[in-house]
Structures are given as structure tokens and as C-alpha cells.
Nucleic acid binder design. Structure first.
Lengths: 206, 206
DNA sequence: CAAAACATACCAACCGGTCGGTATGGACGC
DNA sequence: GCGTCCATACCGACCGGTTGGTATGTTTTG
């Protein structure tokens, strides 16, 4: 597809930075072009519309974050539960720098687009769901390894819950202007997962 | 202050509906006036700027939701833990109708405003924090009633975690276009709180 | 009647998007 | 190996409509 360093790549990178910091609507095409160092002509050569850019950015976000998490070393654990807990610890670890540097592009975008831009909503949903499925696989393996068959919750539901906690933690971080409460929320999530898989609480509590 | 049915009230109501559905930036002053059935003159008579409207909307949101939750009947329980669980069950109960009808105004707004509109960020933070403090009071009472002194988590941290889960559940609901996963996430939160207060897991697990 | 509450008319800046054009480079006939 | 052809990548002036905001009335209310 497009070469690295091309206008398309630069516009996508600019979209990551600007939309995460200001939101989608508040980011103009001119803003994106200025940040990417290209002109409007280049923008509309690569993207049919601003909405089209949003969809492409969501897909690119999936690719970039997918590779990022695939390269993380929590996958080394043999025990799938350790991989899940390692994943969550990793998510906590990367809460560094400015808020806009660790928050989620698609989580931010879907809030503005879900009602009026179906294509964007769908692309964001796909990004979140694809990521959740990887977590789900480890959760399901951990359940199977422990013979947990009668839980009143599912691997998929718990995987999506982890994503909800992360997205919510980002909102609190934005509201309070720092990552501290986000980290605390992830600690609660880690504690919850440990409790769920604790033999004393078989069947998921109660 | 302003009478009910006045232009100010109508504009604030319009802000609730439009911003929850489209976000803050995508909602124009003209949109708000049209929805409220007033003119621009009325808008700028009551609010110095669009940002000013956002701050007022966040404060009004605090008032309205504060009264709404104060009137809910989970407060009847004598056991503070039952009040906490009743609160969460209530939050799950009110996930009805369109997504824009049950999601959080300030959670939506702070995503677009945190970096560039400090006054709005602050107003949203105040709204979330004030609400969380009421949950915190019941959590703290429940901990005291059970003599839980050595937990590695605090009442405030858990209260904020409940808000993070709710905000995250809203994002997933927006991404997926329905309330189902939001409800499932709240179920996980309820299960977590029960586990935390389960005597078998004293000291908060591990 | 004075002040508060609204309406009307208007503006400059900015918005997403279009359009005619150029620069580059690879494919292909000869 | 050289000119023709064409697709891709990119440029930047420009357009009509919309934006937040203002200036100046008119109406309502205490």
C-alpha cells in the first residue's frame, strides 16, 4: 500500500495525535494537513472525506495497537491466567506521559460518531472487539485449564468488561487530568480477575 | 434564578439532548437554539459563550442527576452495603431506551474538552467527583460496619472505580449500539463488590 | 419606566470539499 | 535509449455554506 513517510501515513499519524487530544469534530481537515505537513489536495487525494479519514484511522489504530500488544512480553507465560493478568499489568504500565498519549483513539471517536456516522461507529466497534477477542482467548483458556464450566459469566463478557474498565479509566484520567485514578481502576480490575479465578470463589462468587 | 420554562432552562435541556447524542463540538449554537425554540439573542443573553453554556450544562447536570439519585429508593436500606449494591442495580435498571438517553453528559463532554477547555474539564470533574462522593460515603460505612481496616483499597478509590466502569460501559454501548454489554459490565462490577465484602476474601483478596 | 428577557439582522473567520494543474516515474513501442 | 503515454501523488487557490459571536432593536415584567 502506501510507503512509509507518505502523505497518507503522515495524515494518519496526525489524526492519532489531534483526535486523541481534541476529539474528532474539533479537529479540522486544515489542522490535520498542517500537522502532517501536507496540503489539502493531498488529503482529499487519499481520503474521500473527513469521515473516510476517521474510518481509515480506526483501522490503522487496530493495526498499530495490534502489533504493539502482540510484541509485549506477557505472552511468554504458559499459564493463560498469567497472560491475562500480565496483559492488565501491561495496560497499567503504559499509562505514562500526557493523557492524550495513552488514551484510546477509537474510544474517543465513537463517542462523537456513534449516532451520526455509522461507518465510523462500526470501525471503532471492530477495533475494540478485535482487541477484546485476544483477551477473551486467554480468559477462555484459563477457565478451561481450571475446569470452570458453571460460571455465571462468560469469557467474552469478562473480556469486554476489561475494555469497559480501561475506557472508563481513560475518561476519569481526562476529567482529573492525570493517570493516577486510571491506574487505581486497573488495580481493581486485576483484583477482580484474581478473585474470579480464586478457587475459594468458584463459580464466580455466590 | 431562572424560571422553569425560560429560555435558559430550555437551552440547558437542549444541550443535554444534543450533546449526549452528537458531542459538544458537533453541536452548534444554532442547533441548540432551534431545539430550544429560542433565538441566538436569547442564547447570548444567558451565556457569554458556547463554552460558558457547557460549564452551565455540566453544573445543571449535577443538580438534575443529584436530585434523581437522591429520590431513588435504594437509600431505604439500613445496611450501607445494600445501599451500594442497590445503587449499582439501579444504575443497571435505568439502561433503557436510546443510548443517548442513558449515557452521561459530562463523561461525553470531558473527552472533547479536557485538553483545550479547562473550565469545562473542571466542571465535568466536579460533577463526577460529587456523585462519586455519595457512593463513597456508603462504601466507607459498609467497610466500617464490617471492621474492614486493612484493605489495600480505599472507599474513595472503589467509588471512583464504579464511575469508571459506568463510563466505560457507556462507551461500549455506543460502540455496539445497545445497552446489553453495558448491563453485563455492571453485573461484573456488582459481582466484584460482593466479592470484596465477602468475609472469605477479607482484606480485599490476597 | 427601568431593567431584564428576548428577537432580528448581520459579520468575519472558518469549515469541508472541489478543481485545474504539476511533478514523477514506470510501461511500452520502436 | 528514447520519446509517448498514462497513472499516481501531490499542490494550493477557491467556493458556498456554516460557525461563534455582536450590535441593535423590541417586548415583557416587576
Amino acid at each position: 500500500m502506501a510507503r512509509a513517510g507518505s502523505a497518507r501515513e503522515k495524515l494518519l499519524d496526525a489524526a492519532f495525535a489531534l483526535i486523541r487530544a481534541q476529539g474528532f469534530s474539533a479537529t479540522s481537515v486544515d489542522d490535520l494537513c498542517a500537522r502532517a505537513g501536507v496540503t489539502k489536495g493531498a488529503f482529499f487525494h487519499h481520503f474521500r472525506s473527513k469521515d473516510d479519514l476517521a474510518v481509515a484511522a480506526a483501522q490503522h489504530w487496530s493495526d498499530v495497537t495490534g502489533a504493539f500488544f502482540a510484541a509485549a512480553d506477557y505472552h511468554r507465560h504458559d499459564d493463560p491466567l498469567e497472560r491475562v493478568l500480565g496483559y492488565l499489568a501491561f495496560r497499567k504500565d503504559i499509562l505514562r506521559g500526557d493523557v492524550a498519549e495513552f488514551t484510546c483513539l477509537v474510544g474517543t471517536m465513537v463517542q462523537e460518531a456513534y449516532g451520526s456516522h455509522p461507518a465510523i461507529r462500526e470501525a471503532c466497534d471492530a477495533s475494540i472487539s478485535t482487541h477484546a477477542e485476544k483477551v477473551e482467548a486467554d480468559i477462555a483458556a484459563a477457565m478451561a485449564a481450571r475446569g470452570m464450566a458453571e460460571t455465571e459469566w462468560t469469557a467474552r463478557g469478562l473480556a469486554l468488561h476489561t475494555q469497559a474498565v480501561l475506557q472508563g479509566a481513560f475518561i476519569l484520567a481526562k476529567a482529573k487530568g492525570g493517570a493516577d485514578i486510571a491506574a487505581e481502576s486497573i488495580d481493581h480490575l486485576i483484583r477482580y480477575v484474581k478473585l474470579l479465578f480464586d478457587p475459594r470463589n468458584d463459580k464466580g462468587g455466590r
